[in-house]
Computed example of a mutant assay.
Amino acid sequence: MDMGLKGKTAVITASSLGLGKAMAQGLAQEGANVTICARRNNPLETAKNEIEKVGGQVLSIKADMNSKDDIEKVISETASRFGKLDILINNAGDAEVGRKIEDEDEVWQATYNINVWSCVRAIRAAVPHMRKNGGGNIINVASVSGHSGLAGMADYNSAKAAMLSLTKTFAADLAPDNIRVNAVNPALIHTPLWERLAKENFVGSVGDSVDEVFENLSKQMLLIPRYGKPEEVADVTTFLASERASFVTGACWNVDGGFTKFII
């Protein structure tokens, strides 16, 4: 099936590892040109080399998604290099477990800065290029935590809930510009983030190793009793970015192994 992505230009934020790299690879495999960005040069260049092997042109930019200037640089350099911007995937984010009501403002601000403000700033920078191009496609990587909050993660849960609300609102605001806006809600995906969270918080209580933690949590929480793969999320974002999803906007897709039990 032709996904209609050949020659499209995409920016994927926080894309040297895990979900971001998989989503960039998925688009590149369909012939899209992709911009990847991250804070560390070595993983960024490794990812660039891997993605170039599957197709498309790759622009890699060292950037911190906490920085408004860096976000604007990623968007402007992409438009300059490829002449347009068709797709934006907001993947930047971070999480911690064990948050408390006593946490100071700085803790909350850091979480909101990387999860919410990076999304707002990237959309704000990208939309003028998409309008100039006659339309575009924005995908926000939220989380099931945005609609089913997990204990000890109030800052992260509420930040992801904000991303879901932004998705619905921007879908309405940008529809007249032929810009579709959707979100994906992953749960328990085997990524460096979840490896760190498992090692720091759950080894010893949920399992004796990271692998055992993954196995036990997935059996407890999911209908499909295993952790998801980054490529399984990337398959959904590739579809949402494609012409095959041309009638889909304002949607929030759970890619969660059956974690979500309510009807949506």
Results as ranks from 00 to 15, higher is better:
Gly134Ser: 05
Val120Gly: 02
Ala154Thr: 09
Asn140Lys: 08
Leu88Glu: 00
Phe170Lys: 12
Cys119His: 03
Ala63Trp: 13
Asp94Ala: 13
Asn115Ser: 02
Phe170Trp: 15
Lys168Val: 00
Val127Asp: 10
Asp69Tyr: 03
Gly152Cys: 11
Ala79Ile: 02
Cys119Ser: 11
Ala47Pro: 09
Leu150Trp: 13
Tyr156Asn: 02
Leu150Lys: 15
Val120Glu: 03
Ile87Gly: 01
Leu174Gly: 03
Gly149Met: 01
Asp64Ala: 11
Ile61Leu: 13
Ala171Gly: 01
Lys168Trp: 04
Ser158His: 01
Ala110Met: 08
Gly83Gln: 13
Asp105Arg: 09
Cys119Trp: 07
Asn66Cys: 09
Ala175Thr: 05
Ala79Thr: 09
Ala92Tyr: 08
Asp173Trp: 10
Gln57Asp: 11
Glu96Pro: 00
Asn157Ser: 05
Ala126Phe: 08
Ala126Gln: 11
Glu96Leu: 07
Ser67Thr: 09
Ala175Asp: 06
Val141Thr: 11
Asp70Arg: 11
Val58Ser: 03
Thr169His: 12
Ala171Cys: 01
Lys68Gly: 03
Asp64Pro: 03
Asn178Tyr: 04
Asn113Tyr: 04
Glu104Pro: 05
His129Met: 01
Asn90Trp: 10
Asn115Thr: 00
Lys168Gln: 09
Val107Trp: 14
Thr78Asn: 01
Asn66Pro: 00
Ser118Gly: 07
Pro128Tyr: 14
Met153His: 13
Arg124Leu: 14
Leu166Arg: 07
Gly134Arg: 00
Glu72Ile: 10
Ala151Cys: 12
Phe170Pro: 02
Gly83Asn: 10
Ile61Arg: 02
Pro128Ala: 08
Phe82Tyr: 15
Val97Phe: 15
Asn140Arg: 14
Glu102Trp: 08
Lys100Gly: 06
Ala92Pro: 02
Asn91Ser: 04
Val116Asp: 06
Gly134His: 00
Glu77Ala: 04
Lys132Val: 00
Arg124Asn: 09
Ala125Thr: 11
Glu52Ala: 10
Asp155Asn: 07
Arg81Leu: 01
Asp105Pro: 06
Gly83Ser: 04
Ala154Glu: 05
Lys48Met: 08
Leu88Arg: 05
Val54Arg: 11
His147Ser: 15
Ala122Gln: 02
Lys160Ala: 10
Asn115Ile: 00
His129Glu: 05
Asn115Val: 01
Asp103Val: 13
Trp108Gly: 07
Asn91Leu: 03
Gly146Lys: 00
Lys62Val: 15
Ala172Pro: 06
Ala142Glu: 14
Asp103Trp: 11
His129Ser: 04
Ala154Trp: 04
Trp117Ser: 08
Lys168Pro: 01
Val97Pro: 03
Ser76Lys: 14
Asp70Pro: 04
Ser143Leu: 01
Asn137Gly: 10
Gly93Gln: 15
Ser80Ile: 01
Gly152Ala: 06
Ala122Met: 14
Val97Ile: 15
Ser118Leu: 09
Leu88Phe: 06
Met130Ile: 07
Val144Asp: 10
Val127Pro: 03
Asp155Glu: 11
